[in-house]
């Protein structure tokens, strides 16, 4: 079986859930090898990667990968592609992941498909485009196929092996280090799951009315262990931080459950959440277009319905 490279997403030394999804998906294409880029690799990380089928973990732990955005990662991967001739490269569909994939495509003269939600054994990717209204199947016809894959699109299935560490050292060029990270500013750490990875997302929109209004959204999210999202109307108004925006100009999420509160559902928003498995809508306007997507909708005041729901969830817990 041919080797498939899976780039590991990690934070503070822990492997993110999307990586176990990508390793699961990679097994339909060949034999997955994980690629750990940056410091922090540990036995605990090896255990997770092995659990999902990575027999080999390439580890490139230099500081240059975190001190300079994107370009050094693409150089490292290009060198691995040249040395190992994998049959495909899988990367999570984050901003960094997509840019890394784009640069790698140029370096290796290969086709790239972004935001895949599935890949067949023949390498045909499924994408959900135009705000989820169209399903497209496509494949790479030149070079080493590079796919970025959306989180939450493949349920992770273990297939335990022992992960063997293979250290990789690549001399990164000066040109790849032209942009330098000089600081990192962490917005309020809210202790909730990552928006793009969360199984449940609770969002608020124009109907929330004010920054203080998000307290009821957060309370509901916390009762469910969910991430909080916001529509563009809410982030543009400054009621909730920008990085939580779901929609065409924000994040695309595809959780098991998406709860939209006080969001009318313009295409701007639908484009970011339409592929969620189950959709719940609370809005006082019965004509809100988002009700068309709802598996369950409540026409009513979110400030009455949402706190009541939160109480009810706590009661039943």
């Amino acid at each position: 079986m041919s080797e498939v490279l899976v780039v590991v997403e990690h934070a503070d030394g822990s492997v993110k859930k999307v990586t176990s999804e990508l390793l699961t998906l990679a097994r339909t294409l060949g034999e997955p090898s994980a690629v750990w880029i940056g410091p922090g690799y540990s036995d605990a990380a090896a255990a997770v990667l092995g659990e999902f089928g990575a027999a080999k973990v390439y580890v490139a732990d230099g500081a240059q990968y975190i001190d300079h955005p994107v370009a050094p990662r693409a150089e490292l991967l290009a060198s691995l592609v040249a040395d190992q001739s994998p049959s495909a490269v899988l990367i999570a569909s984050s901003a960094d992941g997509k840019e890394t994939a784009g640069r790698l495509a140029i370096k290796t003269n290969s086709g790239v498909i972004t935001d895949a939600i599935g890949i067949s054994a023949e390498g045909i990717a499924t994408q959900s485009v135009f705000g989820g209204s169209t399903v497209v199947h496509s494949k790479v016809t030149k070079g080493t196929p590079i796919f970025t894959v959306r989180p939450n699109s493949t349920p992770p299935v273990p297939a335990a092996v022992t992960a063997t560490r293979v250290d990789v050292s690549v001399a990164i060029s000066e040109v790849a280090m032209k942009a330098k990270v000089t600081g990192r500013t962490v917005a309020q750490k809210d202790g909730r799951p990552d928006l793009s990875e969360a199984a449940i997302v609770v969002s608020g929109g124009r109907g929330v009315g004010a920054p203080e209004g998000f307290a009821v959204i957060e309370a509901l999210a916390d009762s469910l262990g969910a991430a909080v999202g916001a529509s563009r109307a809410a982030t543009d108004a400054g009621w909730y931080p920008h990085q939580y925006q779901v929609g065409q100009t924000g994040k695309t999420v595809s959780p098991q459950l998406y709860m939209a509160n006080g969001i009318s559902g313009a295409i701007q928003h639908r484009a970011g959440m339409q592929t969620s498995k189950t959709i719940v809508v609370v809005n006082k306007d019965p004509e809100a277009p988002l009700f068309e997507l709802a598996d369950f909708g409540v026409v009513g005041d979110l400030f009455k319905v949402v706190p009541q729901l939160t109480e009810e969830i706590k009661k039943r817990a």
Partner: peptide, 18 residues
Amino acid sequence: GTVVTDDGDGGIKLADFL
């Protein structure tokens, strides 16, 4: 899907659905 109008128990109906 199902859309209900809140008559004071919208949150409870929603909890039933979840």
